[in-house]
């Protein structure tokens, strides 16, 4: 008891430690609420997009390659007819396809081409071109692990931005459009 009486400050040490612990837990809880751990930043950002050679959805005998796409920036949107969240994203793509100012390429992921065609016919086709990856092997190189995912690839074939999950007007305004504008500034 003597010691405590001698140093009144010591009495508050447990309280301070407790407050620090509470602060840790609160930060952890808030972090979990606002960060979805599934949306991992891609290690491929600012790296060259993987080489690909994928058949077109409407003309399966014709292929689109990475080399074909060089020279101008474009958006690559991974979708599938089986993907629920893609249905949520779809109206947004329809509304924005002409506002992006760069081509929007659909990447039909692990999907039967006839299902994809039917899906696009029913809901409308927001894409300037659609390529298909039925096996999902090329998607492995892109680090795709769910749909929808959207990649912004620049004129040199470098991945500049990736969004996992549905694009929303908010995400487009705050993240995607500034990135596209930055690319346009670079190009001019």
């Amino acid at each position: 008891m003597n010691e405590v009486a001698r140093k009144p400050a010591a009495r508050f040490v447990p309280l301070v430690v407790f407050a620090a612990l509470v602060a840790f837990f609160v930060v952890g809880l808030v972090w979990n609420q606002t960060h979805d751990a599934r949306f991992v930043p891609s290690p491929l950002i600012d790296k060259p997009a993987p080489a690909f050679r994928l058949p077109k959805l409407d003309r399966p005998t014709e292929f689109v390659t990475k080399a074909d796409m060089l020279g101008k920036p474009y958006l690559l949107n991974v979708f599938a007819s089986w993907c629920f969240a893609c249905g949520d994203e779809h109206p947004v793509l329809m509304a924005y396809r002409d506002k992006f100012g760069i081509p929007l390429i659909g990447y039909d992921y692990k999907d039967a081409p006839k299902d994809a065609r039917a899906w696009l016919q029913r809901h409308g086709d927001p894409y300037h071109e659609v390529v298909t990856d039925q096996s999902g092997d090329t998607a492995l190189d892109f680090g795709v692990y769910g749909a929808p995912e959207t990649y912004l690839i620049d004129a040199k074939g470098i991945i500049r931005y990736k969004h996992i999950g549905p694009l929303t007007p908010d995400v487009i305004a705050k993240e995607l459009e500034p990135k596209i504008h930055a690319l346009e500034q670079e190009g001019s």
């Binding site: 891609s42 492995l140 190189d141």
Partner: peptide, 8 residues
């Protein structure tokens, strides 16, 4: 794997 999906 890490090159594609990060150390996560």
């Amino acid at each position: 794997l890490v090159a594609r999906y990060s150390t996560f």
